[in-house]
Every structure is written in C-alpha cells, then in structure tokens.
Design a protein around this nucleic acid. Structure first.
Lengths: 350, 350
DNA sequence: CTGTTAGCGCGTTCAA
DNA sequence: TTGAACGCGCTAACAG
C-alpha cells in the first residue's frame, strides 16, 4: 500500500489556494484568512485525512511544543506519584509528552538531555537522577545549559542547588519531623533503609531523620543505616538482613513508602521476630489507603508539585532561577502505635 | 543567549569535509567513509556538542524511530503493569517512547492516532480504549489503517477482533476459571464490580465470570453487577453501596486488582457489615505482595505481554494480522478462604 | 487578504 | 570514497 500521507500542497490544491494560505488557515496562530477560504481549506483537509507533518513543522518553526520527562526507572508496583502527576498535568494542558527512561549513569542522563535538544522540545523536566558529589553533575549542568541556550526550558524536580527552575520537597525537614514524632511516641531503637548512599533525595531524608533523632537525644549507630537499592524489593531484602542480625529494633524508617511497604511485608513474613517492629515511610502514596496497618509517613502534596512544575515550565524564563519548596507533614497511622501507652510491650525483639 | 545549536554544516566545516560525508560518518547505517575522515567528523561533533536535529532527520528520512503508546489515563495509585512493561521494554530496546494520554472518547483516540501519524512514528501501541458496539470503532480502525498505509506499525493490546497485530489476554477464560474456583471454595452469593458497562476488557471479564458461575450452577441477578468507573476509588464507593443495600453477600469479584483493593478497603472500613465478605480481583499486580489479606486474583504474565507486544512491533508486518493470546491462571489467597471448612461462618452478613 | 519565494537541517542521489 | 545539488514538508518574509 504505502499510499503516502497527503501533504499541505494537496490540501491547498484541493481548496484552490496557495500553500501559504492553507498553512495560515490550519494554524490559528496566524490570522488573516478570508472565512470562505479557511472553510475550504479545513474541508479539504478533513476530506483528505490530512495531518500536518510535525517533523516538518518543527524544522520550519525551529521548535516544537511538548515536554520531555526524564526518569530513572518506571516502577511496576506502585505508581510514582510524580510521574503520574506530570503525565496527567501535561495531558490537561494539552502538551505532548515524551517519557524517557534514562540509565542511572551520568552519561545516560546527558545523552537523554542531548536527545531532547535534538528533538527541539520546548521543556525538559527531570525527576531524581542527581547524585551527591557526582563528578558527572558538571557534565549534566553543561548539557542542560546547552539545552536552555538553544531555547528550551528546564525544570528540575527535587534536585535543589542547580541553576535552573526547581521544584523541591522539604525532604530534610519532613524526615526530621518524623523522627521527632516517633521518639515522642516512645520509640528508641531505630534502623534506616536509606536507599542509594549517594542519592540526593535519599541522603536528605536520611540525614533529616538522623538530625531529628539527635535533637531528641537518640543515638543511631552507623551499622543501622542500611544502604542499597531504592526499591520495594531491595527494602524487603534489607529488612530481612536487619531482622536476622537480631539487634534490638523498635522501628524502621524507609526513605520512601514503597520501601516501607516492602519492609512491612518482610516483618509480616518473618513471623515472631518481625512482630512489634514499627515502620514509617515517606511520600504518602495513594496505595497506602489499602494497606494494613496504615503506614505512618510524611505526606507530600503531589498534585501541587506536578502543577507547580508545569507552571514554572510554561512561564517566561526568569533572570534568576526560581526554587519552589513544597513542604510535607507527618501523618501518624497504625504502623507506629503509641508505645507510651503500652510500656509492657517493650523489648519484644532481640 | 539563544546561541543556536550547531548544525551538521558546522561539524562538516570544522572537520574539513562536506555535509554529505559528515552525515555518512555520523550515521553508521551508511558505509563508505575513510576512517580518518570519520574520526575527524566524530571529533568535531564532540567538540561542538553537536546533536542531530531529529525533526530535520525525520523530514529527510520520512520516518522516525520510536513507539507511541496511547493510554486512557495514568493511575496515581497502582502502576498499570502494561504501561510499566512497555515503558521498560522500549527502554531496553533503545526505542524512544511517546506516552499519550487520550481522552476516553473516540474522537480523542482518533486525534491521538492522527497525531502519531503526523509525527511519523514507527510504531503505535494502544492499551484499552475499545468499546463494545461503539459506533466510533470504525473511525478508529480507519485512522489506524491510514497510519499503517503511511508505513507505520500498529500493535493493539487487549483489543482482539480488529485487523491489526494484537496481544490479547484470555480475559474470559481467566474469569471463568476464577468463578468456578470460588464456587468450589463454597461461595454462593456474589456481586461483581464490573467497571464501564461497555468497556471490552471489563465486559469479557464480567461475562466470563458469569459463565463460570452458570456452569457451576450459581445464579446472579442483574442488580448484583455494578457498573461504574474502572478505578480503585469508584470500586470503593460501589462496594459501599453494595453493603448498604444489605443483600446477602459472600464474595465480590472486581474486574481488576486496583478495584478489588478498593473494595477490600471499604469492607474493612465498613465495620461488622463488611466482615466475612470475600474479594477477588484480576491482574495480579505486584502491589498485592504487600496487602493483607492476600488477594485472590487471576495472574497475568505482564512481562511476557509487553515483550510480545514489542516483538510484534519490531517484526515485519505480516500479510495477515497476528493475534497472540496470553493466558493467565487463578491464584487463590487469603481474601477468599475456603468456606467448606467453616460451615458455621455462613450468613454473617445480611 | 493572498501568492511567491526562500529557507529550516538533514539524507541521498548522481557524478566525479 | 567524496562532494554538489536536490528534495523532504512546512512556515515566514515579502510583495502584491
């Protein structure tokens, strides 16, 4: 078959006008077409099943609408609330979305950024992916600057400290508040499932939690901060190691909810040794509504985050990069019962 | 700033060759460039931070790599296993992915298809979105045919019966097996949370379940098949209505796991009236591992489904459309305990 | 308001 | 193996 798509010339010919007029009629941006002609062009396009060749349009215009979202991985268990938020927000705005899963290396990230530049995409957003003291950060910044120099807009999500518009969560503060709350509830012996040692988000949450403990006068030895993958499965495994070590454990803080749910499952599966250990997470993902016991966590207003990211992206680029910090708050649920009311429940693990 | 991106000419000039040679050097597809020249071109590109303008390349070539995935909505609670599967599979294959959320109307779908054609995208995959007896199906098929006539490849997921390559799940059979299993376990009084009345997947699962019941000699009055949204929240609400109606209820079948989890939560929140009602779902999403009681469901091999879809998409278009049917199997968990062992537990709701 | 014409940046013949 | 020249489909500047 391969009966090639109709082109603008075909529409123009059929409508009895020039391609220029046809183009103008099709693109409401440009005014100045007699109604009669506009109608004929639209009719011709309809009859021919014409669709403008977006690639050609992009070449001619030099730029194309739409956002490119770079993420590190697409989880198949719990929805990433940020990804879902951005996907739905762009849909609402009628913006084409390009979802790119980049490897975790800096090179992969730079490649993805360059590819977006090659696509002449209007806005570029990235979630996660930044590392602490990563030598590659410079390369990434350079790539992003090239992208902006080329006329694109960059919005970083949760990666404060870079010279671009940013939507950041108050990770450290939220974790600190969570730690204080747990201590108040009567917990003393903690462990942290910290994710990647050098992931920025993970580090901030871990450090915030440690600070909160310190302020409340609770110590935490380094061997109780378990690093590893940032996933539910890794957390399940890590919690297992923790339990097998036989240390005294009142509560586990996992740096995100998916990990916390994994830990919770391990404790459940572990039998008696897992009983009585509390768990807390971070994010307050929607799935928590269906989980028992309810998971104590730090709530973040995800819809606001996504909306804010889009807002920044669509506004004029300011002289100085803007940083919107979104604050969360602790939500206490049944996974961290009040121990002060059950003083006898202490010491159920060894 | 707007210091425009370097173009191929710039690279060519810097390497001291023509744009033709530069193009050939950059595209490994074309052979026949002296190694020395190739090296100089690559070096020049590197130094300039050159990235091919994909739009221009697409115009010149007439087509571009990558898959466009059309979905109806992006859930923010549980990951859609198909979406996650396709996202990750395309990433593995190094294929650019365009994720499009189309409205549920046929027009939205047709628009999305035409847009993909306008983008000259290589392959188009759609998940869901087909309706029973929808007058719009013809329009959709026409749009897809135009897309294929234009050189693209179409792969439909879970929408059997259309003249395109298709990956279908055995929805009806799985639901039928589930119904038989539940009856064997001793359940008699069912209700179904059926989702959209005219959604194809939902209808197949509902009808399969009804058939299974019928074969097992169990009747189900029409007022126990509750239609509505295909989401967790809608299911939560619908289960509430069910409970309030005060009918005798042994078990609820929800046509997907997210809905089942919503129903489970409602029953939990409903207090005594919700107790003793079993729940079963469909899909076996990963999140079920962290839920108690474990949810009885129909397992589908999601990784296989995504891989198969990609395989079909990347293979030559066959003369006759191919249909791969992926079969699932029932997994019984604690949400549907064996009632035959607890004859006294009967009739706990009214 | 409309048509002519000249690009946009790249791939690709066709000779050399 | 290489380069000159043309074409891809569309928009934008410039006349009219």
């Amino acid at each position: 078959m391969d009966s090639r798509s109709p082109r603008l010339v075909d529409v123009a010919r059929r409508a009895g006008v020039s391609t220029a007029t046809a183009s103008r009629a099709l693109n409401p941006t440009t005014r100045g077409v007699r109604d009669a002609n506009r109608a004929r062009v639209l009719a011709a396009a309809e009859e021919l099943g014409y669709t403008t060749n977006l690639a050609a349009q992009t070449v001619a215009r030099g730029r194309t609408r739409g956002v490119t979202l770079i993420v590190k991985a697409m989880p198949d268990d719990y929805a990433n609330p940020m990804v879902a938020g951005v996907v739905n927000a762009t849909h609402r705005e009628g913006l084409p979305l390009n979802l790119v899963v980049a490897g975790s290396g800096t090179d992969d990230l730079v490649r993805a950024i360059d590819a977006a530049r090659g696509r002449r995409a209007q806005v570029l957003m990235t979630i996660g992916g930044r590392f602490v003291d990563d030598r590659g950060t410079d390369k990434m910044v350079t790539a992003l600057e090239r992208y902006e120099a080329d006329g694109g807009r960059v919005v970083l999500i949760t990666q404060p400290g870079l010279p671009f518009d940013t939507v950041a969560y108050a990770n450290r503060e939220g974790a600190k508040e969570l730690a204080r709350t747990l201590v108040e509830l009567g917990y003393e012996h903690f462990a942290i499932l910290a994710g990647f040692a050098n992931g920025l988000t993970q580090r901030d949450r871990t450090q915030g939690f440690l600070e909160g403990l310190a302020e409340s006068g609770v110590e935490l030895s380094a061997d109780r901060v378990v690093t590893g993958d940032f996933t539910r499965d890794a957390a399940y495994a890590a919690a297992g190691d923790l339990v097998r070590r036989g240390i005294r454990l009142d509560a586990i803080f996992a740096v995100n909810d998916a990990m916390a749910l994994g830990a919770l499952s391990l404790l459940r599966d572990a039998g008696p040794r897992g009983q009585g250990v509390a768990v807390a997470g971070f994010d307050d993902i929607k799935a928590l509504r269906d989980v028992t016991p309810g998971l104590t966590t730090v709530h973040l207003p995800w819809d606001d985050v996504a909306a804010e990211a889009i807002r920044l992206a669509l506004s004029e680029r300011p002289a100085e990069p803007r940083v919107s910090v979104v604050r969360g708050h602790v939500v206490v649920r049944e996974s961290t019962p009040d121990r002060r009311m059950h003083p006898t429940a202490e010491g159920e693990t060894t």
